[in-house]
Design a binder for these strands. Structure first.
Lengths: 155, 155
DNA sequence: TAAGGTTTAATTGTGGACAATTAAATCAGG
DNA sequence: CCTGATTTAATTGTCCACAATTAAACCTTA
């Protein structure tokens, strides 16, 4: 009994159950992603950051200099998303945007002091977020592994 | 000197590593969700549907009539997202929007014939998507369970 | 070196997401 | 009944996300 048909067990059960929201993997993925982003909100708001901007910062805190292309490859985002986002971050003096003199097609994003300064303030965010999840490090690690695996299948 | 230390292993490892993209759970969640949505694209495009519209349809195919509030509760979306989305779906004659005569504050969304007709065409989508994931039903079920659990922690 | 193809960002247009506000309808207490 | 609080959608404004197009710079190769 895979469909739980209440009245006509043989009629259309396979088709219907497979098209039920509760039987999808995609919906919890979509919903959890949005809810997790929302859970970051209060922490990020205190730093005047949005969630995708926070992701950009995590890369810049580590690498200091990256091209738009490199950011896009690591975040799986294209220039249509990144260009306006990076311009907003530039306006806040968090980073610089300049063409690579050796290849004028590339735009190099560089971390500025104000952007570097946010790193210390952001240090508590991942810790506070882990609290909200009520999951053990092992569970989190396992989930990340599964998701990363899916990513390699799709990306 | 709290920032650098490529040479002093004990200095700031906790802070930095915790702020690395690769150590986050949130990023794979965010990226996988977008990639899965993108994987639906070719299938949905054939039906002239977007992914959130497809989610709305899965609920309407099951329930036939739902208020905006009920849709929002089930999809975890607010009226700022749903109202314009539902208006676009109304324009395509997929559904109707009318006030509840017994409570004029509520808007009842009703499935129309053209919307019902899409159900049959959508039947293959979940099956085709499962193929793309290269995961066993058990793995998928386990992952859905974990995600649903996180959802209850956050929502 | 000139022509054609490739790479890289930027731009444009559409469609979500969501916070905050507005406005109408309903409800509860007096 | 009347008043004030609550519920519900709609609206507004900002910020992603992404497909498709454009344009400039670079590269290849004949």
């Amino acid at each position: 009994m895979k469909t739980a048909a209440t009245d006509t067990p043989a009629a259309r059960p396979p088709v219907t159950s497979v098209l039920k929201l509760e039987n999808q993997l995609c919906f919890p993925l979509y919903a959890v992603s949005r809810m997790v982003t929302k859970a970051y909100q209060p922490h990020l708001l205190a730093l005047d950051l949005t969630y995708p901007q926070y992701l950009v910062f995590m890369l810049l805190w580590e690498h200091d200099q990256l091209t738009v292309k490199e950011l896009g490859e690591k975040l799986l985002l294209d220039s249509g998303t990144l260009t306006p986002l990076l311009k907003r971050m530039e306006q806040k003096q968090w980073l610089s945007r300049r063409r690579d003199p050796r290849d004028e097609r590339s735009v190099i994003i560089g971390l500025l002091p104000a952007g570097r300064a946010l790193q210390a303030k952001a240090g508590r965010i991942p810790i506070d977020m882990l609290d909200k999840l009520h999951m053990s490090p092992a569970e989190i690690s396992a989930l990340r592994t599964q998701l990363t695996h899916i990513l390699t299948q799709l990306a």
